[in-house]
Amino acid sequence: MNKNTVLTAGFAQIPKGTTLYEVSTMVGCVLIIDVDAEVICDASFTFVMDKTSEFLVSLLVGKTVADGMQEITKAIQERFLAPGQGAVLQAIRAAIERYHEKKA
Results as ranks from 00 to 15, higher is better:
M1Y: 06
N2I: 01
N4D: 07
N4V: 02
T5I: 08
T5K: 04
T5E: 08
L7V: 07
L7D: 07
A9D: 13
A9N: 12
G10Y: 05
F11S: 12
F11T: 03
A12D: 12
G17F: 11
T19W: 13
T19D: 09
Y21L: 05
S24I: 10
M26T: 13
V27C: 12
V27F: 14
G28S: 10
G28P: 09
C29V: 08
C29D: 12
C29A: 14
C29N: 02
V30R: 13
L31A: 05
I33P: 01
I33F: 02
I33C: 00
V35Q: 05
D36H: 07
D36T: 05
D36N: 04
A37P: 00
A37K: 01
E38A: 01
I40E: 00
S44R: 14
S44H: 10
T46A: 02
T46V: 15
F47N: 03
F47C: 09
V48I: 10
V48P: 08
V48G: 05
V48Q: 15
M49E: 13
M49Q: 15
D50I: 12
T52W: 13
S53Y: 04
E54S: 14
E54N: 09
L56T: 01
V57G: 10
V57N: 07
S58R: 07
S58C: 05
S58Y: 01
L59D: 03
V61Q: 04
G62A: 05
G62Y: 00
T64M: 08
T64D: 04
A66M: 02
A66P: 01
D67Y: 06
M69N: 01
M69H: 03
M69F: 01
E71F: 03
E71I: 00
E71G: 00
T73A: 08
T73W: 09
T73D: 09
K74Q: 10
A75E: 11
A75C: 07
I76C: 02
I76E: 00
I76W: 09
E78P: 05
R79N: 11
L81M: 12
A82L: 15
P83A: 07
G84V: 11
Q85L: 07
Q85M: 13
Q85Y: 07
Q85G: 09
G86A: 14
G86D: 15
A87G: 14
A87R: 13
V88M: 08
V88P: 09
L89M: 15
Q90I: 11
Q90A: 14
A91Q: 14
A91G: 13
I92Q: 07
R93E: 04
A94H: 12
A95I: 03
A95R: 09
I96V: 12
Y99L: 01
H100C: 06
H100K: 11
H100I: 02
E101F: 15
K102Q: 15
K103L: 06
K103Q: 07
A104Q: 08
